[in-house]
Design a binder for these strands. Structure first.
Lengths: 154, 154
DNA sequence: GAAATATATGATAACTATTATTATGTTGTA
DNA sequence: TACAACATAATAATAGTTATCATATATTTC
């Protein structure tokens, strides 16, 4: 378990209770929450925290390499305390975002493959799998137009 | 070469010069432009077109499966007339977005791999490679914090 | 080719999500 | 404990996208 206090102190940054809580919430979450979700959770402990503080804090944590921020084809950022490269899954029906556990390949190999055939210097890769989660795949909530799409929202 | 007129008529949709031009610009572009870029290009032919028309048109083309829309970790949508699954490359310095030509793997295999180990129903995958394009890789314009990041913006 | 209709466009407003500014509060150091 | 520097809270602003409504236009029919 990473001690955010140590990480921050090592970088010469202030340790504040807001930062500790925001980081802990994200460390313990596999939901890849949006800023709004983080804000709602943090407010349970710090009722007077401002939305702006949540934004600034997650932004700073990202800049310090302690979080990764991404979006998945929607107009909203999500945050992940797991900064190692790993694929995600996005449900086309309910919108949930999960880690793609058990994916057999090491995505770093994709980086190497891409680097071997490209004039660009490849640093990392994002893998986003889209489909229906177990709760939605059996239901009629599937988005019909996505069923007949041959591409997706990449 | 896809004839947008035929595609639209087949779906019972109006063929308008704005739609033709917007689709043609995107078909011929590998830049995966934003709505603003599309708007600037279209204005060269239709000076009085409205920004709203561009937004509504690309949105409709996407809904009709004729375009794909995605974002790459920034707060802005990009559009691509190539709706078949293919990886993209994003430059961390200049921000350009390109197709990852010559990538040796068929990304559909990744979908099959993911589907074989996941309880989710996987429909498609987005692959975004991040790094430095040939113009930026040799320069000092690299974003320093990204050099030492171990994850990225996924 | 003209008329009618339904849909698209253009102009404008509104909304959403995020970022910036500034005054005040807090952390860390001496 | 005091002070300086940074963080937070409150508020404003920005950027990008979507909605509304009046007008224009594409398509169909005659």
């Amino acid at each position: 378990m990473v001690y955010i206090k140590d990480l921050l102190r090592k970088k010469g940054l202030r340790v504040t209770p807001q930062r500790e809580l925001i980081y802990r919430l994200l460390s313990e979450s596999k939901a890849h929450p949006t800023a709004e979700h983080v804000y709602q959770e943090v407010r349970k402990t710090f009722p007077s925290i401002s939305f702006n503080t949540v934004y600034k804090t997650v932004r700073s944590l990202e800049e310090w390499g302690l979080l990764q921020r991404f979006n998945t084809g929607e107009n909203i950022y999500r945050y992940d305390a797991n900064v190692s490269p790993h694929p995600h899954f996005i449900c086309l029906s309910c919108g949930r975002v999960d880690d793609m556990d058990n994916f057999p390949d090491d995505v770093e190999n994709y980086v190497r493959k891409a680097a071997s055939t490209s004039p660009c210097e490849i640093k990392f890769v994002n893998l986003h799998f889209y489909g229906y989660c177990p709760l939605c795949r059996g239901s009629s909530r599937k988005i019909n137009n996505k069923e007949e799409d041959n591409g997706g929202s990449d």
